[in-house]
Amino acid sequence: MNENLSVLGVFSLLSILAVGGGAAVLPETKALVVETHHWLNDDQFRDIYGLGQVVPGPNMLMVIVIGYHVTGFLGALMAFVGFFLPAGAISWAASRVWDHFEGSPWRRSLQQGLAPLVVGLMASGTISIARTAIDGRLTIIIAFAVFAGVYCVKKINPALLVLGGGLVGLALLSGTGAGMPPP
């Protein structure tokens, strides 16, 4: 079977399921990529998600790296096209007809109903990353520090906090073999 096509298929499915944005589709992405297709292990998924956090733009651009891991640059392209084309086409088409529903009371029901669903999916996305990323006291401290920084200090650039977490890990964990793949 052609792996490139299955990368395209998996990310196209995730694209149309990504109601509520990237964090909402994170648990399903991990389930498909790690558990169903075994393209990555838990640690690699956490690492690649981390890479997505330190670059600008949408975090879910990390799907490119997942595709690269499966079949190289063509896989990267397949993951990108798969993840962005279907949802992009839907948005493009829907925004042209959306105004026809101006004033429909169901539009607000849709928003109000989807809002808590999306928050639930984002919470699940956090849990799915935390299950691998939180391992030992230092990771708990880093997570709480970044949480406090983002939540309480509004003006701070979150990427700097994430990079700071990386530096703390580098300084305090590099002798311990943390995150190393099993031999």
């Binding site: 690492d47 999306v118 928050v119 984002m122 956090t126 691998t132 970044v146 949480f147 906090l161 995150g179």
Partner: peptide, 27 residues
């Protein structure tokens, strides 16, 4: 590379903190 992996463990933990903060801000 142990240095790369150690740094990414820190980045992953930081990502959890950030995701929970963003989730709570929206929710």
């Amino acid at each position: 590379n142990p240095y790369v992996n150690a740094a990414l463990v820190g980045v992953g933990a930081a990502a959890v903190g950030m995701l929970s903060a963003v989730t709570l801000q929206i929710g």
